[in-house]
Design a protein around this nucleic acid. Structure first.
Length: 647
RNA sequence: GCUGGCGUGGCGCAGUCCGGUAGCGCAAGCGACUUGUAAUCGCUAGGUCGUCGGUUCGAAUCCGACCGCCAGCUCCA
């Protein structure tokens, strides 16, 4: 006999060797024993007492198991329907799971329906997942015709002699998969699932290895959870900046320009200018100096900087000019800023020098990684290089953090995930520099009191960095800010300053971009606000709508007064009905619509409507104009209280 | 870059499987209506069907290349 104590519950006596599941409530999907997740069928050892915790699909670990088992059933269904299919790996992922296959013909969306239907049959059949442990040889024999499984077995053994050379196999109804587990007790316990998409994926993520077909799915404990997730996907779709960019007439990517290259339309231009004006203003206020640099430079600059050696894959090919040297479009602004620094002998009194530029860069990103504004080939960074003495570095990094938080707060972001990224495989500079630079950043982070985690090997090729990821309105994280520490470029460019001791010293450099690129940041803002920009960012802030043609002149006068107060106001004088104009203004997500007709002209009032459809009549025009001008000037995220204006 | 899917007036789509030289809605222009909070009615114009090449009596439709877009290629039994 053995005694099983269920955490937060009672103790049960069970006979030795009986499944731990017998002691657990029926909604358990697996058990946590000594911190390890085990199948419900795991046999209780006969001697002692154990404490176990029931894990249900309502908690992350349980959901993970549920998704893992769903992936397993996906592979089973594929093997049923496509004899000879080779199956590779199928882990649970955030919100779902995937499984990679090698099958003769490409899957089509119709195949997904068939596969999903087969999965439902398997679920309905209630097949138990049975765990067995095999020796290496047995396992190899068991997966004789499954090359990916064989490779996993061989690699696992080479790596760690996993499980002491025992390999777990989960079988249900004759079909089995190599898997550490745990799994659900039965396919009948699968939750609500749906196959979502198809994609290619390299075996082991290596582009030199065979490309497999990946099927993505999502799985949840309940139908309601699944519905909620599908709803979130729709919500993300509704916010898609590429769709909104078109709808709001902000920008476009004409084919004629080339992939990843865009033009900003007038409405997008106003929006972008609002972003840039703010960014310039706050940088000037924070002790940065504006600089301007060209878009191309001779190859020698990129040789010195190390870009041709380490960053060439991301650069556009050279421009050849007969009888002249090659030129390259710049993928970064740093070398130019270095040249500005080096234009004269610098004193320790000149430091820190904070050079700021909205610098346009060109990067030949892989064709398949381009994604609207979020990944472009030509973009403009809010780029700064802070050149300082080593003893100033920590303070300068802290100042950069402060500026980062202030800027993001203004744009409506307040929740961040922060990473300290360390030396990558491809890097320049001595080990010593890397260690020092990383230590400075860590010190600054510690002093800032910000929470952070370390991302090994994720640094830039010239130095370690701190990245800020902002959480948006629907909980997604976006990498925006990067603050990078660089001891290498000052060395390469032989940057110096005269110290107090009348000796030459080497400065250090901080690279930092707070928004990242204006393009990418704009994409994030569009998705964050779903196009409903705060007033100060809205291309058209107020649309004045005359009820009938005869009110046009009055509307124009009103809009004129708004413009005098610095507001971006326009009159809709198209020959449409007023209702149509209201609809139009709302579809264009214009923050405020102002309607004027006979009654207003007579009473000297206006009717104000926000883009959510909230409407207030009888508002004194000056009160509204004043409130809106203030909202815009102060770059508020929240709109004015319309009800408070009604007098 | 790779795998799969897609590309038809400014925008959103049908037509492509089973070749016979294009259709709808919105937007645009014109006319009528002059309207109080999410689409008034009518008329008109607009497309060498991404590009180039091939097959065919004939290609939006079939084949090839290229360009562009979309999903993924990071999560490692």
């Amino acid at each position: 006999m053995a005694k099983v104590t269920v955490e937060g519950g009672r103790s049960v006596e069970v006979s030795a060797g009986s499944p731990v599941g017998e002691a657990l409530p029926p909604d358990a999907v697996c058990a946590r024993v000594d911190g390890r997740l085990m199948d419900l069928s795991w046999a209780v050892p006969d001697d002692g007492e154990i404490t176990v915790r029931a894990v249900t699909a309502a908690e992350p670990d349980g959901l993970h198991v549920l998704r893992h088992s769903t992936a397993h059933v996906l592979a089973q269904a594929v093997c049923d329907l496509y004899p000879g299919a080779k199956y590779a790996i199928g882990p649970p992922i955030e919100d779902g799971f995937y499984y990679d296959f090698d099958v003769a013909a490409a899957f089509s969306p119709e195949d997904l329906e068939k596969i999903e239907a087969r999965m439902r049959e398997i679920a309905a059949a209630g097949q138990p997942f049975r765990r067995r442990e095999l020796s290496r040889d047995e396992a190899l024999r068991r997966f004789e015709d499954q090359p990916f499984k064989r490779e996993i077995i061989e690699a696992a053994e080479a790596a760690e002699g996993a499980l002491g050379n025992r390999f777990a196999v989960y079988d249900n109804d004759g079909w089995g998969d190599l898997c550490l587990g745990p799994h659900l007790p039965s396919t009948s316990r699968l939750g609500a699932f749906k196959l979502l998409s198809l994609a290619g994926a390299y075996w082991r993520g290596d582009e030199k290895r065979p490309q497999l077909q990946r099927i993505y799915g999502t799985a949840w404990a309940t139908e309601e959870d699944l519905e909620a997730h599908l709803h979130r996907l729709e919500e993300a779709e509704r916010r898609d900046h590429r769709r909104l960019g078109k709808q709001l007439d902000l920008f476009s990517f004409p084919d004629e320009l080339g992939a990843g290259l865009l033009v900003w339309h007038p409405r997008g231009g106003i929006f972008r200018k609002a972003v840039e004006d703010f960014i310039r203003e706050i940088h000037m206020r924070s002790g940065y100096q504006p600089v301007f640099t060209p878009h191309i430079a001779k190859s020698v600059l990129w040789e010195t900087s190390g870009h041709l050696a380490k960053y060439r894959d991301n650069m556009y090919p050279a421009m050849h000019d007969e009888n002249e040297v090659d030129y390259y479009a710049k993928p970064m602004n740093c070398p130019f800023h270095v040249l500005i620094y080096k234009s004269q002998t610098r004193s320790y009194r000149d430091l820190p020098m904070r050079l700021f530029e909205l610098g346009t860069i060109y990067r030949h990103e892989r064709a398949g990684s381009l994604h609207g504004l979020l990944r472009v080939r030509g973009g403009t960074q809010d780029d700064s290089h802070i050149i300082c003495r080593p003893d100033q570095l920590v303070d300068e990094v802290l100042r950069a953090f402060d500026l980062t938080l202030e800027i993001h707060r203004t744009f409506g972001f307040s929740d961040f995930v922060i990473n300290l990224s360390t030396k990558p495989g491809e890097a320049i500079g001595e080990e010593r520099m890397w260690a020092d630079a990383t230590e400075y950043l860590r010190t600054a982070l510690d002093r800032s009191g910000l929470e952070f985690s370390v991302a090994e090997g994720e640094g830039a090729f010239y130095g370690p960095k701190v990245d800020f990821h902002a959480r948006d309105a629907i909980g997604r994280l976006w990498q925006l800010t990067t603050v990078q520490c660089d001891f290498a470029l000052p060395e390469r460019f032989d940057m110096e300053y005269m110290g107090e001791d009348n000796e030459r010293h080497r400065p250090v450099m901080i690279h930092r971009a707070i928004l990242g690129t204006i393009e990418r940041f704009s994409g994030v803002l569009i998705e964050h606000y779903a196009g409903d920009f705060p007033l100060w960012l809205a291309p058209e802030q107020i649309r004045v709508i005359p009820v009938a043609d005869r009110h046009g002149e009055h509307a124009e006068a009103l809009a004129g007064r708004m413009r005098e107060r610095g507001l971006r106001a326009a009159v809709d004088n198209s020959r449409e009905r007023m209702q149509k104009k209201v609809r139009e203004a709302q579809l264009m997500k214009i923050p405020y619509s102002v309607v004027v007709g006979d009654r207003d002209i007579e009473a000297g009032t206006i009717a104000v409507r926000d883009r959510e459809g909230h409407e207030v009549r009888g508002v004194p025009p000056e009160a509204f104009i004043e409130a809106a001008a203030e909202e815009s000037r102060e770059r508020r995220v929240m709109g004015v209280d319309l009800d408070g204006l009604a007098g």
